[in-house]
Design a binder for these strands. Structure first.
Lengths: 106, 106
DNA sequence: ACTTAATATCAAATTTAATTGATATATAAT
DNA sequence: ATTATATATCAATTAAATTTGATATTAAGT
């Protein structure tokens, strides 16, 4: 019989959530992708692949990682998938100083 | 003969720096360590090891990762090493909302 | 219907990071 | 000097993330 450590459990959940988000951010290629999405707005995979010079399957892999933690969003039109930076989520996680990296205006 | 892509190079460096910082943040155990350092202020390794329930060598490994990217600082006194959260660096990287996780007052 | 184009997914190979237990180093206490 | 304590580092293992090339899926154009 043990007591339920409520606060610790909820902290643990919080740490889990942020671990996933930071993992997604912890990669140069993905930071570059986010930067490009920020600069160009909604962009389809094939255009993005050209911009980053990355094979399509590899790019899809990295986009999925960013999508799964809600740092980017996806909209499908026909066979095209358009990805976009989730500015709200970026603002929620990063300092305004850092967010600046992911703002078209800066 | 090729032109030097100055802007891209400096962007690449920026991404490298943040990759390393986010990598350090991308781990539940390390987030927990940072949280404890925030709550308790300057703490020596043996006390911290007890708090996180982690073998000493493992803890030292994780502390080094945080230290290397300047998210924590270290001060040695005799055989003891005292680690402390680098509040400035945390503020520089994370949103104020998130920083709150690493503020004693919140 | 058939072909082409865009994207996602998969399995295998590779690379990178984390864990473990042992050992080294350095200070402090006796 | 010897012993005990705190911490860091190392080599070996294990685990996780990334890359690659191939294939599947789905919509569009002819």
């Amino acid at each position: 019989m043990k007591t339920i450590p409520f606060i610790d459990t909820s902290l643990e959940k919080t740490f889990q959530v942020y671990e996933a988000k930071f993992k997604a951010l912890a990669d140069q290629k993905r930071l570059h992708i986010m930067y490009l999405l920020c600069q160009h707005g909604s962009t389809c995979v094939c255009d993005l692949a050209e911009m980053v010079g990355m094979p399509q399957s590899k790019l899809s892999y990295h986009l999925k990682i960013l999508l799964d933690v809600n740092l980017i969003t996806k909209a499908t039109k026909g066979t095209w998938s358009y990805y976009e930076l989730n500015q709200d989520e970026v603002n929620h996680v990063l300092s305004s100083e850092l967010c600046c990296l992911f703002r078209p205006s800066c």
